[in-house]
Every structure is written in C-alpha cells, then in structure tokens.
Amino acid sequence: MLRQILTSAVFAGVAAGVLAALFQLWLVVPLIMEAELFESGQRVHFATDGSTQSDRSAPSVWAEPLRHVYTIGFSAVTFTAYAFFMVAGFALAARAGHVITLHRGLAWGLCGAIAVVIAPAVSMPPELPGAIGAEVGPRQMWYLTCVILTMLGLVQIAFDKRPRALITAPIFLLVPHIIGAPQLDTYFGVAPAELASEFVARVMGVALISWALLGLFTAYFWTRSEEA
C-alpha cells in the first residue's frame, strides 16, 4: 500500500504537473507577463494624456527561459502534492469498497478542479500581478477553508447516500461564499479589464484540463500498481 501510494502519486503528479505547466506557458503565463508591464508602469491604460487605450501584445515567453523552468518545476511539485491527496482519497475509497477506474479517476480530477480553483474563484477570483488585494494571510486562510469545505461537500454528494447529505452538502459548498473572502472596499487594478477576464477564464480552463489529466494519470498508476 505504501509503495502504491508513493509511486502513483509521484509518477502521476510529475506527469500532470509538467503538462499543466506547458498549458500555462502557452495560455496563462504570457498574460501574467503582459500584466507585469502594467504593474511596472511600462504600459499605462487610461493614461493622463487622455488616451484610453493601450497596446495589446504579450512579451515573448522565450525572453526569460529560466523563469519558466522554475514554473515547470513548481507545477510538478504542486501537482505531486495534489496527487498525494488524491491517492489518500483513493485508498480511503478502496477501503470502503469502491473500485478505482480511469473514468472515476477523471471524475475525481474534475472535482479537484472545482474544489481547488473554480469554487474559490467565485468569491476570490485569480489575480493578475499588480492587482492589489486584501492582506495575503487572511486570504490564504479563506482559500484553504473554501477548498476543504468544498471537498467535504463534493465527497458527500459522491459517497453519502443518506438523505441528510442533500441538506449538508449544499451547506458545505455555500458557507465559504456566505462568509465571503477578505476584500478591499476599493478597486485598484492597473491592467485592462479585458486582460484580467481573459486571464481568469484561461486559469479555469487550464485547471480543468490539468486536473482531468491528474485524475486519469493517478487512477492509471494506482490501478497498475494494484495489479503488480
């Protein structure tokens, strides 16, 4: 069991993490680098000379190769962490008599994207560099609370057949948003609204595909090492 947990988490996490980083480098990182031009003032939207528009173009991702090597590395570490949580879940589900298949792995992965990215984004959207938000500590606390409660809600929907789960699952899913994330009472963004919305949409799309791959890979390595 221990070997099964270690090998499937590391193989699946690194594979999904590297692929996720490639999707990020293609779709998300150029927008981050473009936003940094506004953060540093190299590009100004609604300049004081009266012009409302600013150029649209992202810096080349090939300009800073080392920076992206770090991104790939940390993406692999992060997805390995997610894979460890997923195999822990697989092991618990297996003990309860559930069989892990590739299809179920995919469903686990999509639920992971919902819990870790999409649900928290409802009250605390992903932020471009240069966005000024509330203090980072309380936001991290809210984020973790939202992820854990969303996971508990999804687990109840998936596994709890008792009628009371119909009441408790929505409560778990909604409570973080009823409490609300820490927010400032003013807008500070310097980047164009189009850039920010494109960034948020792509973060969610990349999260969905990355987590789907993580679920598939983790289920693949899990079932393979079960047979071995």
Partner: peptide
C-alpha cells in the same frame, strides 16, 4: 521562483 505558477494556479500570491 514559484510566482508564475502561484498566479496561474490561483493561489493567493
């Protein structure tokens, strides 16, 4: 070093 990944993965950065 983790900066871009944190933004791209929607961690509070």
């Amino acid at each position: 070093t983790a900066h871009d990944m944190r933004h791209a993965m929607s961690f509070p950065c």
